[in-house]
Amino acid sequence: MEKHLHCKDFVDTISSYVDGDLSEELCVELDKHLSECDNCRIVVNTLRKTIDIYQHQAENEKAPEDVKDRLFYRLNIEQFRK
């Protein structure tokens, strides 16, 4: 990669970057850009944090017990026996 990497190029790949879903070569380029560009570093950190907060919020979230009770009542699983 000869051309200088710009912030716009970074944003286009940022999602795959946080997923670790890029070639090693491209990753090295992006890492280099990040070490020189405060803005992109903030964007990538806050993006990671955004995903992280959403995951964390849902982690132990279960359907309430009364919802499950009504689900099984409604399904009446025995009737699906062939």
Partner: peptide, 10 residues
């Protein structure tokens, strides 16, 4: 779509 969704939420 994932890129767009994530960036909008961010």
């Amino acid at each position: 779509r994932l890129l767009r969704a994530r960036m909008k939420l961010r």
